[in-house]
Write a protein that binds this DNA or RNA. Structure first.
Lengths: 336, 336
DNA sequence: CTGTTAGCGCTTTCAA
DNA sequence: TTGAAAGCGCTAACAG
């Protein structure tokens, strides 16, 4: 831990006025150039002069001033649910941050708590809000009142909304079933996490599993809770076996690991006794025993789409459909 | 993906002027009350009136205006290295965000790229910067020039700095050795990741392992790279066995999983043939085969300390030493 | 095509 | 103890 005191000669901040002076133009012109103001067309010479001055002075516009003036910042607020955030979280931050940065937007994450976050909203004046859960009526009212140009990307398709990620979640479940059935497993189980907070996801993924089972004329999946906090995951395995389940779809790779572990304590092994397929492809999935077959979401495509959606919504343009390309891919290893 | 258009009646934003009017005082008074201005003492009645008005109007101060005025925002910039961010990342975000929020500070993460981030610095005017790598001279100059009150919390202790996390990293390595030796393993190996970007950490943790080996009069650890991207981790295991290594410390849990997997392909099992101990206690560690013994950093304590350091540094107070309590704890399972 | 200018909402002297 | 007022740096009308 180290600290720097204030510099002795606190050189004043470089402002757009400095740039204007250096370039021999007015502040307005500087602003027009820097913002590619559509209403004003600036001759190339002037443009270059301004840009040069900017470079020479190392000028960076003050986000605060710009926000104050425009009434809206360049921040995009990502409101995460109250789930335990796992590997996926880092991935999202990483690529979404990059995708937004391209457009001059900065990602700010906020994890939902029981407390309302309307104050955050007003304090940040974000350019957009991305949510992974539907906002309740109260929250939506808040956002309207706060005059936040509001984009909601949600996992929940209960309302009439387009639903990129929702579709993806269902498709993930379908993909699991498809693979299992292709391998000849016809009586399926589903491994849910005990943590009730993850249920949003589950509902959707499980729903996809159910859909696909129904479509293929299979019995509905046997759902079992799998405790993530430790021991008795063998119970779930026994229950499946009792129902003659031969293949289980896990809500995510952690759950799959738990199932595999439960099987191990029972002296069973995958995929012979029970095939297991996960979701996420966490880094250690390849080191599972046996290496875990799983469905890997293509984060970069998803975040790219999210970023585009935000941009379009900010401009008031109609939102596009999710990309054609699958938002996930099957990674076949040995567990199924 | 759903979108809200602008509200029809865009009710103007609630400002401190509104609060002042509602409370029958001046804007200055509102400001004093809200900021607990030390130079001014406000009678309790006035205070209450203001606070009531704030609540009634649902007023939230504009971060932009405040920043513009004060020249510094309430943002704390966390500059992460260019490593692959794993499970730890989410943990840090989660608890550090909460710890800072208590003090009205908002955490913003920025992952280092080859490009400089000085523009970000000037744009955000953050209240502090937390770095997990030492900043180079250029960057430090930038920060001074940008007049950012600068706090550096670094993993690198090469310069004369206090080093909470550094000590912790070394201590983590020592802790691994301690446990292994207590269990009777005396010839040790060290599992490094192939990814060169993680080396910062490794150096420190490995250093701790070396120190402890030296202190106990053991031979230095046999270091082996472990490829995280797939297959041939068996080579490392063979190499260790050839050197009569009986216990290996892994740089993190993923590396430990890789080692365990390599052993499995060789028909070996832990801890009989080779004991393995990791770092991090990722959620799936308990489901490893065998369940992974590991050193778990106590994130909440670490982030609390980070938050406190930031606060103190912002106030110009001297920085305190890291907390007495160990910053990590041993989680004994079966692999070692 | 470029410049002048009026604020955005807040904090903080300075004066009352 | 409270109020009036001057900006912080920027953008966007409006003039020129």
């Amino acid at each position: 831990v180290a600290e720097h005191g204030e510099p002795e000669h606190r050189r004043a901040r470089v402002t757009s006025a400095d740039v204007a002076r250096e370039a021999g133009v007015s502040r307005a012109t500087v602003s027009y150039v820097l913002n590619d103001s559509p209403a004003h067309t600036i001759p190339e010479v002037t443009r270059r002069r301004v840009l040069d001055a900017v470079a020479r002075l190392g000028y960076a516009p003050s986000a605060a001033a710009r926000t104050l003036r425009r009434g809206r910042s360049d921040l995009v607020l990502f409101v995460t649910p109250d789930w335990p955030v796992g590997h996926t979280y880092g991935q999202i931050v990483e690529s979404l941050t990059a995708d937004l940065a391209v457009h001059g937007l900065t990602l700010v994450m906020h994890q939902r708590t029981p407390q309302p976050w309307s104050a955050l909203l007003r304090a940040l004046s974000p350019a957009a809000v991305i949510g992974v859960q539907a906002f309740d009526a109260d929250e939506e009212t808040q956002m309207r009142a706060a005059q936040v140009p509001l984009v909601t990307v949600t996992l929940d398709e209960t309302e009439r909304r387009a639903y990129a990620l929702t579709q993806s979640q269902r498709a993930v479940g379908r993909c699991q079933v498809e693979h299992l059935v292709a391998r000849g497993y016809r009586r399926l189980g589903y491994a849910w996490l005990t943590d009730p907070r993850v249920r949003t996801f589950d509902d959707l993924r499980l729903d996809g599993v159910r859909q696909e089972c129904a479509r293929l004329g299979l019995k509905p999946p046997v759902v079992q809770d799998v405790p993530i906090d430790g021991t008795p995951s063998a119970d779930a395995v026994r229950a499946w076996l009792a129902e003659e389940v031969t293949g289980v779809c896990a809500i995510n790779d952690e759950a799959a690991f738990a199932v595999l572990h439960g099987m191990r304590t029972l002296g069973l092994s995958a995929p012979e006794d029970l095939a297991v397929i996960g979701v996420d492809d966490i880094p250690v999935a390849q080191f599972a025993s046996p290496p875990l077959t799983t469905v890997a979401p293509k984060m970069s495509i998803i975040t790219r789409f999210l970023a585009t959606s935000v941009l379009r919504a900010m401009r008031g343009e109609p939102l596009t459909r999710p990309p054609r390309a699958d938002l996930h891919e099957l990674v076949v290893r040995e567990s199924a």
